[in-house]
Nucleic acid binder design. Structure first.
Lengths: 141, 141
DNA sequence: TTCAACTAATTAGCTATGCTAACTATATTG
DNA sequence: CAATATAGTTAGCATAGCTAATTAGTTGAA
């Protein structure tokens, strides 16, 4: 009944529904999902090259090149020459980009907090532990 | 330290990364994400109208109309007249659609199982409990 | 050391997916 | 019955995904 397959299936479904609810918060920012996701890598992970960004986001460099152009149009990020390699770029978030991302992150967290605040202490501890386990898995993958 | 905001933030991040890893499995099916997601509603939730499908997926009817056309082109779903309302449609998955979705679901679960099977019994129980809590939240939202 | 092979990024052209606005057809309601 | 509301489609636009081809810079091996 609670086989490892069932847990996997439940996690899959829970993640899908969680993300679906949180997308509503993102849509208020008037920046498309690909741009927001790339911007979050830049804001929370620091500057990187276009290929690195494409790797994190699991898209081709061609796609990422256009996403970064969009971010530049919105003044949310900028391209700079890489100090190490004249072929590569150093892509970084602007101040406006950082502010937007922090605002969006806050809206997501607020949305989730509204859902969580009716839980009892035991359930909150349970989620807290689960987050730790999931983070541990991520580091291994 | 483990405030409700921290838990919310951790859940957000964990869900994002989980979904990102699982997307790789979906891409092998050669059906776009919007079609797959709509198809999963039809397969696991049963037939419904176009507006209902649009509501679940949080897109406009205009967008869903085209997604359903795409599913029909792929022979994964079909439109039928609604028995109750001559304006409305009954949209249902085809046999091919059900088979593809079950295959995709299995691939996602297999991918997750590969990540989970190194966990000890305690961590698995923890995730199992967390899934229950998250399902409870979903029903309230 | 020079030249071939590789790597980083961009561009063009295609498809898919999101939107709004305008439309057709059917239901509902005053 | 007429006005209004609802279900779905279409057209036109922007964003985002892909491959293939191109430009520019790096690396490595003869």
């Amino acid at each position: 009944m609670d086989s490892i397959e069932d847990i996997a299936s439940g996690l899959n479904s829970a993640a899908i529904h969680l993300i679906r609810r949180l997308r509503k918060e993102d849509s208020k920012l008037n920046v498309g999902p690909a741009r927001l996701s790339a911007l979050s890598v830049l804001v929370f992970g620091g500057p990187c090259t276009l290929s690195e960004l494409a790797g994190y986001e699991q898209v081709t460099s061609a796609t990422m090149s256009r996403v970064v152009s969009g971010l530049e149009d919105n003044r949310l990020a900028r391209r700079k020459p890489s100090p190490d390699d004249a072929r590569a770029l150093r892509i970084e978030a602007t101040k406006k980009g950082r502010q937007l991302m922090l605002k969006g992150q806050q809206a997501r967290v607020d949305g989730l907090v509204r859902e969580l605040k009716h839980l009892n202490e035991k359930d909150l501890k349970c989620l807290h532990q689960a987050v730790k386990v999931l983070k541990r898995i991520e580091r291994k993958v």
